[in-house]
């Protein structure tokens, strides 16, 4: 039997680089991300936080060696690892929180669009209701919010700024369409 590789979320790996050339806004889809949603059992929130070495802040991601933990809601985090093998990542995290929490495999559920460039703040204001002003958010800022009617998990990964925008896979192409249409004015 042939070896299958996961399909590209847009069906066209070239699309991203094409849309990013000479632009005020640039795009990337980082490959090989693994994602798991971690739940702390009732009363075990602090233990999970300690065990994973993450922060209890509701709006700031914590960076660990092998993953970033993005807070989702009380006692819930999305752990994003730079790991091609999502089963391995899931197993590693599950082992850490065994008995105090649960892990749901979510690697395929979302596509991460990485957005940056000199005009990225103006660009984000076209769809994002949140205040992403320079004096307001900084590296690590996390939020869930709809952009162009599509639910987005947003993570500011540096001070450039660069934003990682995670959307449900079924919306990946619709979101990409919005991204590129809206970015056209910043060419």
């Amino acid at each position: 039997m042939a070896d299958f590789v996961p399909i590209h979320p847009l069906g066209d790996p070239e699309a991203v680089s094409k849309a990013s050339s000479n632009a005020g806004v640039t795009f990337d889809i980082p490959p090989d991300l693994s994602m798991v949603q971690v739940f702390a059992r009732k009363g075990q929130e602090d233990n999970v936080i300690r065990k994973l070495g993450i922060s209890d802040s509701p709006r700031t991601a914590s960076s660990q060696k092998s993953f970033n933990a993005l807070p989702l809601s009380p006692g819930q985090w999305m752990l994003v690892g730079n790991e091609k093998d999502s089963s391995k990542f899931e197993a590693a995290i599950a082992k850490k929180v065994a008995g105090i929490g649960y892990v749901s495999q979510q690697s395929a559920s979302r596509v991460c669009f990485r957005v940056s460039g000199p005009k990225v703040r103006d660009f984000m204001s076209r769809g994002c209701r949140l205040d992403l002003g320079e004096s307001v958010t900084s590296k690590g800022y996390c939020a869930q919010t709809p952009i162009a009617q599509i639910g987005v998990l947003l993570h500011q990964i540096d001070e450039a700024p660069t934003y990682d925008l995670y959307v449900y896979s079924g919306f990946a192409r619709a979101f990409w369409h919005w991204l590129t249409e809206t970015a056209a004015q910043f060419r």
Binding site: G75, Q76, Y102, S104, Q106, S107, A108, S109, R110, G170
Partner: peptide, 8 residues
């Protein structure tokens, strides 16, 4: 504890 897995 639960979450959507529709697109997983």
């Amino acid at each position: 504890h639960f979450c959507s897995a529709t697109e997983q």
